[in-house]
Simulated scan of single mutants.
Amino acid sequence: MPGGDISDLDKNRVLAQWLEWQLRQVRNRIRELEVQELKDKRRAEQARAGQRWKIQPQRSNVAALLHRGDCSLYSSEMGFLDREEAIIALAEPDIEACQICKPETGLVQT
């Protein structure tokens, strides 16, 4: 290295290190964005579930229960009801409202 000049090899090594650092930064940002996107998606699904209802089938001497879609007492990924169907279900004598999630709140005008 006459005159203190940096060789092409050294320049390219430094450039490679810098590009690798940049790539790590971009990959970290991608991971952050993926996590945020997943959180947003879960939040939207939970909000949507709050606008749906589900029926827990009757068991032996316990009446069937109507739950909000986001009620954690009864987990079901299928058979969601819309608002009209939930109103009809509440009118049935053998279906009761869950005392925890209170699915009738805002559903039936009193």
Rank of each mutant, 00 (worst) to 15 (best):
F80A: 05
S75N: 14
E104R: 07
R43C: 05
W21H: 12
P2N: 13
R68I: 01
R27P: 04
N28G: 11
L107R: 03
K39N: 14
Q17C: 07
E45Q: 15
A97Y: 01
E92C: 04
G79D: 04
R48H: 12
N61M: 09
C101W: 03
I95F: 10
E104L: 03
Q109K: 14
S75F: 06
N12L: 15
Q22M: 11
T105F: 03
S7N: 08
V14G: 06
L107P: 00
A47D: 07
A86N: 03
Q46I: 06
F80N: 04
L19V: 15
Q99I: 10
I30P: 03
A49P: 01
Q56L: 10
Q58A: 14
L33F: 13
V14P: 02
G79N: 05
A64R: 06
D40F: 05
C101M: 05
A63G: 01
K102I: 04
S7H: 06
I6P: 06
I95P: 10
D5L: 09
C71Y: 00
V62P: 00
Q56D: 06
E85C: 02
L38D: 12
R83F: 05
G3Y: 14
L19W: 13
L9V: 14
T105Y: 02
D8P: 00
P2Y: 07
K39H: 11
L66C: 02
G69L: 01
E34V: 03
N61F: 12
